[in-house]
Nucleic acid binder design. Sequence first.
DNA 1: TTGAAAGCGCTAACAT
DNA 2: ATGTTAGCGCTTTCAA
Lengths: 361, 361
Amino acid sequence: MICLSDIRRFLENSKRNTKINMTNIKVVARHCGVAVSTVSRVLNNHPDVSEDTREKVLRAVAELHYIPNTSARNLVRTTSDTIALLVKGVNNPFFSKLIKIIEREITQSGYTLELHQMDTSEDELRVGAQLTNERKLIGILFLGGRFNYSPEELSLIKVPSVFCTYTNSFGTLGADCYSSVAIDDKNAARFAVDTLVSLGHRRIAILTDNQDDHSISELRFQGYQDALKSHNIPYDPSLVACTGTFSDMRAIYRATSELMERDNSFTAIFAIADLMAVAAIKALSDHGRRVPEDCSIVAIDGLEISEYLLPTLTTLVQPVEDMGLACAKILIELIESRGTHRQVTFQTLLREGGSVRRLNT
Amino acid sequence: MICLSDIRRFLENSKRNTKINMTNIKVVARHCGVAVSTVSRVLNNHPDVSEDTREKVLRAVAELHYIPNTSARNLVRTTSDTIALLVKGVNNPFFSKLIKIIEREITQSGYTLELHQMDTSEDELRVGAQLTNERKLIGILFLGGRFNYSPEELSLIKVPSVFCTYTNSFGTLGADCYSSVAIDDKNAARFAVDTLVSLGHRRIAILTDNQDDHSISELRFQGYQDALKSHNIPYDPSLVACTGTFSDMRAIYRATSELMERDNSFTAIFAIADLMAVAAIKALSDHGRRVPEDCSIVAIDGLEISEYLLPTLTTLVQPVEDMGLACAKILIELIESRGTHRQVTFQTLLREGGSVRRLNT
DNA sequence: TTGAAAGCGCTAACAT
DNA sequence: ATGTTAGCGCTTTCAA
């Protein structure tokens, strides 16, 4: 018997169907005279479908240009094989190689990696939590996050995770409740400055983003200060050039120029990042100081391009390959319950370039 | 009356609830004694909610750390205010500034921009179609795609779209059915070579990715050949160095070295991308040829870093700012039905650096 | 091997 | 101002 509500529903449906002209699983099913569940089975490679039906369905899928709706899929699924790589900051040149390595490792281990870029203004933990809900993630790799999580904040994340390229130096997490893979920023900075001191330099300037960002800059700045102290070199604030950025070459150039105008007595610069060194070398050159003849410069990063500059950059190389492998390995072990939380610190390796020389005495 | 199916459902629900411990909108609603629709209204800033209820709900949301499930949201919504920026290739340094500009423009116009990275192996049109389904997109900006779409392929995309930084030079799309924003690659290459010729160079090598990729390399290679022809300079295949890559500095270095070993008679190089020029300069230097004294070099791109190299790179600058603005503007006009399809071509601007000099005769 | 139907979490009618 | 309820498109029991 046809009743009023049937009619209403029919009208509503037809209205909807004209409004949103979407090929969904129902359309595909109807098109080849099978049930939606059968179509679903085919699309998900379930074994218990006859060859005939499978072919029929696949043909319909192709003909109708059917594309499954991932939202609907994720909604009904309780799990997935998806690991998210949550990248904060589009413009970090150090990340691109790391991403490639991580992607390779995760894929080879049989998982699916999803790359998600996020704005610097967003909070990675919130985004991570949301994405976990939404995409039924089984793990998260955070790339480039804050150094100061609290346990409550981290408790938002309900799946295994690893902090890549950063530590919890300014946070309050217990060592047994998070994993991280990074270099020892303070030590690396100390080593960079040591290298300059061992070449006879004592007036060593630092080119940094910020002195107290509770992040990478602050750690490397501390290393700079520590190194000076250990060599009984007085710390001189006038040799500190703050750029306020890691990527804006113009601002870095300007900061270096201001440094020279303020106090041109330095014989060496420690730049906390490769790209900073590039802008600094140009600024020095424009002010008539050649590198390395009139000023030595050491940086941290080890970008590929740094080997192709003139002069090549002397820099502390982050072992990207190893770091990427470690990130993937630790996360997968956590996911498969074969490992525990750990914080891995990698050593940087001095790559000697042409940007330093022994100071004539 | 309680019947058997009620009991079964209850058991099922409780089983599920213990298995998946998710705070969803229902939990929030129960927690503060309102209906789910009220919670939804609060979360979506609907006006018809009393201040009291709103506060109560927001408090519950905070207490329970409730995070809405975007999949469910997108599934039920019929529209959104979301534009996707679909980026192909993580490692294109030219993109990062463009992305920033586009993001700013789209946001300022009141839309939401979602950045999606995709692998080079994926097909951008397919991903775009899927994303449109899934996230109810109202527009797509394709960044770095193929140059050879066919009308059938493009018909997958049901929302307004703009091709950013590429054209349809090798495809079959009618001019009135797609929009693009790019430079004229062939012309730019021609201009680069013209510049070298006007400085007296006639043995001009080209450093390119590929001669016939039906993409950017091929267009720029054609421009190189056209320029030679117009100056009656015979084309010499031994002066073509193919790198097979835009980003692997090592491979570019090697290609340049091989070029020198094969035929060292060139007095200038046209590099189709800034980063290629960087590796080439290093290779030249390592083989005892200085730039610009022993070899001039011109590139295309105008990356920020190119202004900070020694020597600074002479390069044809792509007007990123204008291009970003144009991409956003065209798409928004299409979305708001205030515009039609158009293909915008920008002129590159010669930024004179220190990498070229007049050839002594 | 296949179909019918429940329901994932949410929004948007519609009802009150 | 708030509650009730019907699906969004899909997967997954369960039944046939």
